[in-house]
Design a protein around this nucleic acid. Structure first.
Length: 117
DNA sequence: AGGTTGACTGGGG
DNA sequence: TCCCCAGCCAACC
């Protein structure tokens, strides 16, 4: 069974790093993407890009994990799939386009949440 | 307690 | 632009 990042606080109203990541990712609209580093900075963890990746690996069902890509507009989930990449398929279904090198133009599909605390 | 492992990044060559 | 790598840091041996 995949381990899910635990809550740091105990039942308090405090948001953990993971909760904040999930809350932000849930706000990314279909057809748009954010990078791991962008998400990390937005939740106050500027050097936590790898942790965002960890969080995506064990995220709840309702989190659109496919909308988080690496800083080069590429998918970091390639090694998880053999032949077929689910993330690539899900993003194309949302209207996102990939160039010949398999990358997304972040200036076109990138997203930043201005209303995010 | 200490070493390894990444769904990462930015900078250097 | 691509490849390489040090730095990164929680989770997992």
């Amino acid at each position: 069974m995949t381990r899910v990042p635990g809550r740091v606080g105990s039942g308090s109203q405090e948001h953990t790093f993971y909760q904040r990541v999930y809350d932000l990712v849930r706000r990314i609209p279909p057809g748009r993407v954010m990078t791991y580093g962008q998400v990390a900075r937005a939740v106050g963890k500027p050097r936590g890009a790898r942790m965002v990746g960890w969080a995506m690996r064990a995220c709840p069902e309702d989190v659109p994990w496919q909308r988080v890509v690496n800083s080069r507009g590429g998918l970091s989930t390639q090694s998880l799939h053999a032949g077929f990449n689910l993330q690539h398929a899900l993003l194309e279904d949302e209207g996102i386009e990939f160039d010949s090198a398999g990358r997304i133009d972040l200036s076109q599909f990138g997203w930043q949440d201005d209303t995010w605390r």
